[in-house]
Write a protein that binds this DNA or RNA. Structure first.
Lengths: 253, 253
DNA sequence: TTACAATTGTGTCCATATTACACTTTGATT
DNA sequence: AATCAAAGTGTAATATGGACACAATTGTAA
């Protein structure tokens, strides 16, 4: 919780620099070794959690803002974010921030304004990140998707909508670059799909299909050292991968 | 072009009632008998065209605003609109509205504010509509998609993005209810798909696939009176149609 | 050293979906 | 009655998706 002085400063500053009534929230899904997580912040002194979000500078392009906000809140940089939905219920933020109501007049309190929020989602390898909370958060952490804490505002809805969008994306776009290490095994890649979709896939059929997309290159040397048969290593054929991103996997019609 | 008094009144009114920096633009695709069109407005005295758009009332839900705006601008009511993208280039509206720059101070001119715009799209039967321009437009009309006039602002980009979203939608959702008459023939429905996708489809394969979705009911009586063989009439099985809307046609995985 | 367990690689069958393609039927027009 | 234009229908070849089993490799434990 902020002091009165801090709050007023923040609000003055916000009014000066940010575009009113508009915010951005980021749903960053993290994957590593079969675990799917989502990046959350925890409010200082309260224990409640929320998605990393923030406001748009008055002259800032929105894509840039989404990246800046994510970096400021969580330290994560250079993440490919994709917008997926605007959440615009007029009351979506009303029930919160009541705690400051005696400290500042409502019309001066930036946080009690109405905000439309634009949701962005991303998928990253959470082991290559160093989440760092900003000054307003007690911590920034990867939360298990199946064991989420209570989320502020409508952030649970935003998260669910993002997950639906991500799953839909699997059907017509490749996924996994920036997520898998440079070289990875087919079972490792399969784990990614299984984790996102939250269901088991057939090993053999997965491999056939994935190879059919033509976005993978198999390296000569299999991985050594593990217990059990040495798996082949694959890497993404970036040229074909990018092409598939644009074209989509199948037209359907 | 507005007079100075009209402009100032509009701006005062807008500041009082609308949420700043945010607008909504609607891309309404119209279909009828094999023709695909899009609903446009033409600026009075200028000839330039634009998509029907407007602003969000301070306490209005965005879905409601999209419908209200479409109705106010074009007279079209009860249209199912779907949001698809936010356009947020900080300069997207800068180059326009310069014509008023001597009439009003820039900081008082609502239109020179920065606006993020949320795009909605819809698909309707244009013969069941009665487009009516509002007071600011010279006319409201259905323009051929293949013969578009010059569009203001970034509306050409918005339109193209909407068309891509519509085509993507064809792959995983049924389409056509509210668009076809209650009863229609298979070739008529096929024409809809061909028009949206802008390519020919095979008659027999289209029919097989469409029937496979299980969203059509064939009526007992074929249509009479045309020259040539009487075609069967179909109607949408609304229950299955709605289910398919939610479920999607195929998961892919 | 040998047997075992765990993991990966690979191929085949079958059902279904997709594509390409041609003939028949119907109803109005002449 | 012949013709034309549009609509109905079927089939064969191919591709795809899903289910499934066995062989190969590697470390570990007996």
């Amino acid at each position: 919780m902020l002091t009165e002085k801090e709050l007023k400063e923040y609000c003055d500053n916000a009014r000066k620099n940010y575009l009113a009534h508009f915010s951005i929230d980021c749903v960053v899904f993290g994957f590593h070794e079969g675990l799917m997580k989502v990046l959350l912040l925890e409010v200082k002194d309260e224990g409640e959690c929320y998605l990393p979000g923030g406001f748009l500078l008055k002259k800032e392009p929105i894509e840039m803002a989404a990246n800046r906000i994510l970096k400021e809140r969580t330290g994560l940089d250079e993440i490919f974010l994709q917008q997926f939905h605007v959440f615009g219920d007029p009351d979506r933020s009303k029930q919160h921030f009541d705690m400051y109501k005696d400290m500042i007049a409502p019309e001066e309190n930036w946080f009690t304004n109405r905000f439309l929020t634009l949701g962005y989602y991303a998928l990253v390898d959470f082991c290559e990140t160093n989440p760092a909370p900003d000054q307003f958060a007690a911590k920034c952490f990867w939360s298990d998707l199946n064991d989420l804490p209570e989320l502020k505002l409508d952030h649970a809805l935003i998260l669910k909508t993002a997950l639906d969008a991500l799953r839909l994306q699997l059907n017509y776009q490749p996924i996994g670059y920036n997520l898998m290490p440079k070289e990875f095994t087919m079972p490792e890649l399969q784990k990614l799909y299984e984790t996102i979709l939250d269901k088991k896939l057939d090993r053999r059929n997965f491999q056939r299909r994935m190879l059919g997309f033509g976005i993978l290159t198999r390296s000569e040397q299999p991985r050594k050292g593990g217990a059990h048969k040495a798996p082949y290593l694959y890497s993404f054929d970036l040229k074909n991968y990018e092409a598939a991103l644009k074209e989509g996997f199948k037209g359907g019609w």
